[in-house]
């Protein structure tokens, strides 16, 4: 079929052009991060020349001003810990909800599902108050907040998966004398792996990029990457070091690109699986 061949060639080049257009915004930021402070806003599209080229100065000097390094550490700490805690406790809860037949397990399930559609602004003010009063307004306490506010989605996808597992496996383990604890960790938990990957991915994307919750709850003392980026732009009236800011944007995108390159296959699989369950 000659027609199909032509179509494939046109399709390929069309997609190639589009892919380049797609990457331009990111490349532009990288390019501007190599320019001196004053040259960034004067013409963001100009290539660095002998006058504007600043080599790595933005990365060495500019970034220090933005507090990026400590923000990176904090973001890593909060994201990794929250995701691990969420996966552990919500998978346990989901198993309980899926297997125990009682009015309160279905009530709990519907409450979790309900919480998924509630916009953050609805609970934003009162959640910061609760965090204040209960002493959860620190990097460890925020893990509890993420667990609670994010529980809905994770419980939902885990319950969906567990309901599809034949219950005979658990019955057999039970008859062999295993405690519920053992049944969960030796039988159920290993089976949950693919769903746990999806949950890990969706929660990582949310928590790593979340701005408002960490800003309101711990932002005055501790800044995650999005909070640091935002407060650098809002805080520095007139004294913005745009070069340093560009370097900061590049550095905040790098961990994501690395994460994506390492886990590309599972990420795309996770998105698809998560969507089908939603």
């Amino acid at each position: 079929m000659e027609k199909q061949k032509v179509f494939r060639v046109i399709g390929f080049w069309g997609l190639a052009v589009l892919a380049v257009i797609y990457l331009v915004p990111l490349l532009l930021v990288v390019m501007n991060s190599l320019k001196g402070n004053l040259f960034v806003s004067s013409d963001p599209f100009a290539l660095p020349d002998s006058q504007s080229f600043a080599a790595g100065a933005n990365y060495t000097g500019g970034v220090a001003k933005t507090g990026f390094v400590s923000a990176l550490g904090l973001s890593l700490f909060i994201t990794v810990l929250s995701v691990l805690v969420i996966l552990l406790v919500t998978s346990m809860t989901a198993w309980y909800i899926a297997r125990v037949k009682a009015w309160y397990t279905s009530a709990l399930y519907y409450l979790f599902v309900f919480s998924m559609i509630v916009p953050f602004q609805m609970v934003m003010f009162t959640m910061s108050k609760v965090a204040n009063v209960t002493g959860l307004d620190n990097p460890l306490g925020i893990v509890v907040l993420y667990t609670g506010f994010g529980a809905g989605l994770s419980v939902f996808i885990f319950v969906g998966f567990i309901r599809a597992i034949p219950i005979e496996i658990e019955e057999a383990a039970m008859i062999d004398g295993a405690s519920p604890w053992q049944v969960f960790f030796t039988v159920i938990f290993p089976i949950l792996r693919p769903t746990a990957m999806t949950g890990a991915l969706l929660n990582t994307m949310w928590i790593w990029n979340d701005d408002l919750l960490p800003y309101l709850v711990i932002g005055s003392e501790w800044k995650t990457i999005p909070v640091a980026v935002q407060s650098y732009m809002v805080g520095a009236y007139g004294h913005k070091d745009m070069g340093g800011f560009m370097a900061m944007l590049v550095l905040s995108i790098i961990p994501i690109v690395v994460f994506f390159l390492i886990g590309q296959k599972s990420i795309i699989k996770g998105v698809t699986a998560g969507a089908v369950k939603g």
Partner: peptide, 15 residues
């Protein structure tokens, strides 16, 4: 053991 940890966090952060 199984439901309370999530439920407590859910109470604090959502309910």
């Amino acid at each position: 053991a199984f439901a309370l940890p999530t439920f407590l966090a859910f109470i604090l952060a959502f309910i």
